[in-house]
Design a binder for these strands. Structure first.
Length: 283
DNA sequence: CACCAGGTAGGAT
DNA sequence: ATCCTACATGGT
């Protein structure tokens, strides 16, 4: 490995310490818009949830984070979830020729493309259409609290799994205020488990077509599901921000295929940084 | 009271 | 194929 990221990963008394200095930052990930269920605690810590697993993560005393869980769980669940085995520094080096991406790395280089649950991503990004990020987070939260399974309490707060299709099937989803998206979600819940299993096995083009054929999923949501739910790293979702950014920064001319194998990571960096600068200007 | 928010379906051209 | 518009809801 040419770049050789300096990764510290070892057992400590209360869990597992992980430190990847330039390419793993939970605050940046939580603000990156790919994940709506990473919860910030008072002290700079976070709670992460995936499937039926729940973990408390606190800042390490010399940087990095401590995952408060057994080592086996860290290795089998959280390493893959946060994509910690991939060499993001190598990706970053391949972006060095692009000024905007160098700035984006300086601002958000700690972002990683998470491997989230496929079904959860389908529902979450259906909800995301023509919606804003705080409201997406709230709707997902209500779905979990109302229809999910309690997983445990951390710092006095109860956390829940994302509801399975069976848990949503036939339910009145109105507490989540999904608006016109509610019928889309209800229809999604009617597909059986095997449908989603088959989707994971399909190649990129087939999977994208399968997704777009579903009511409520167009090209953009399909690409988000591909990237965040199927970890298809060549997927490059184009939303309003990415389109504005391409117009603004690249004069309407940007080809993600030049970053084959990590175009989705490039998209995340661009999305994060362009939105961040827009927010700062609007203040 | 307008306008906006990680778009999409369904219909018209 | 490509363009047009309605769409639920809650926040400025």
């Amino acid at each position: 490995m040419m770049s050789g990221e300096k990764v510290i990963c070892r057992r400590v008394s209360d869990g597992v310490l992980i430190n990847i200095p330039h390419t793993f930052d939970l605050k940046q990930i939580a603000d990156s818009g790919q994940c709506f269920r990473l919860t910030a605690l008072q002290d700079g810590g976070y709670v992460a949830v995936t499937d039926m697993k729940l973990v408390k993560i606190t800042p390490g005393t010399n940087g990095g984070y401590v995952f408060h869980c057994p080592y086996d769980e860290f290795r089998d669940v959280w390493m893959p979830y946060f994509d910690l085995s991939a060499d993001y520094e190598a990706y970053q080096q391949k972006m060095a020729g692009d000024l905007f991406l160098r700035e984006a790395i300086a601002a958000g280089g700690g972002i990683r493309v998470l491997r989230q649950n496929l079904w959860e991503m389908v529902v979450t990004f259906i909800i995301s259409q023509r919606n804003n990020i705080p409201r997406i987070r709230k709707a997902v939260d209500i779905l979990c609290q109302t229809f999910g399974t309690p997983l445990g309490e951390i710092d006095g707060q109860q956390f829940y799994s994302f509801p399975t299709p069976a848990q949503l099937r036939g339910q009145d989803l109105s507490p989540a205020s999904l608006g016109y998206r509610e019928s889309y979600v209800k229809e999604m819940a009617e597909y059986d488990e095997d449908f989603w299993v088959q989707l994971q096995k399909q190649d990129d083009d087939t999977a994208r077509k399968t997704l777009i054929a579903l009511r409520g999923i167009g090209e953009k949501v399909a690409n988000c599901v591909m990237l965040f739910g199927l970890h298809r790293m060549d997927s490059y979702p184009r939303d309003v921000w990415i389109n504005r950014m391409i117009d603004d920064i690249y004069h309407g001319n940007f080809d993600p295929s030049q970053y084959a194998g990590f175009a989705g990571y490039v998209q995340q960096l661009q999305f994060f940084y362009y939105r961040k600068t827009a927010k700062e200007e609007s203040v």
